[in-house]
């Protein structure tokens, strides 16, 4: 369990580990929750500006990314089943697929942000500062929220990568897979956040 000086403490508590992970997810939920609170208030204060600003975003980018993330959620969930059924290779393939999908999400995001920066729509830019307050706030929130979400995707890639290695060397296996479950839980949370970000930024009328 611990760094060697706790030999007698060795006990495995998968239930406890999952509980810890869930509690951690709540803190993530509330972390984004704070941003959603801000979004709600500003949307309430500046409904028309938010509408106009949302027109600038490309629904196709958003929709494609939604599909990518949903699919990656599927692959990571299936990888757990595969490991439970002791099909290590399949599980590794599915985890790898998850990582690839996550990377393509980020690439997509890169192009989307890149296009905005390209024609001068970024925080502090003259083009943005010329717009009405509500639109400045919309883009402030857009960059902050999708940026923070993107950061979580990156963390997720690293997290799943580490677990892949542990499955590879056999530390995580068909009777001890709680770490893969934790990675899965984390990844699904990243997905859920996006499920809300997508309509709030790309679809509002």
């Amino acid at each position: 369990m611990s760094s060697g000086d706790h030999t007698a403490h060795v006990h495995r508590d998968d239930y406890g580990s999952r509980m810890g992970m869930w509690l951690f997810l709540f803190t993530e939920l509330i972390l984004f929750g704070g941003l959603f609170l801000i979004y709600a208030v500003y949307r309430f204060m500046y409904p028309t500006e938010f509408h106009v600003a949302a027109m600038e975003l490309d629904t196709v980018f958003g929709a494609v990314n939604t599909i990518i993330l949903l699919t990656s959620s599927l692959t990571i969930a299936m990888s757990i089943t595969a490991l439970q059924r002791n099909r290590k290779t399949l599980s590794l393939v599915l985890q790898f697929a998850t990582i690839l999908l996550a990377i393509s999400f980020m690439v997509n995001k890169y192009f989307e942000w890149g296009a905005k920066f390209g024609y001068g729509l970024y925080p502090g830019s003259e083009m943005l500062l010329d717009k009405p307050s509500g639109e400045i706030l919309f883009f402030g929130l857009y960059y902050t929220m999708t940026g923070l979400h993107g950061l979580h995707v990156l963390i997720g890639i690293v997290f799943i990568g580490i677990i892949m290695y542990q499955v590879w060397i056999g530390r995580v296996h068909s009777t001890n897979y709680v770490r893969l479950e934790s990675a899965g839980l984390y990844w699904h949370l990243v997905d859920i956040i996006w499920i809300f970000l997508f309509p709030l930024f790309y679809l509002i009328i």
């Binding site: 959620s73 969930a77 839980l185 699904h188 859920i192 499920i195 809300f196």
Partner: peptide, 10 residues
């Protein structure tokens, strides 16, 4: 959608 992810995927 979140409900589906929570109950089944998670």
């Amino acid at each position: 959608k979140s409900w589906l992810v929570l109950t089944i995927f998670m």
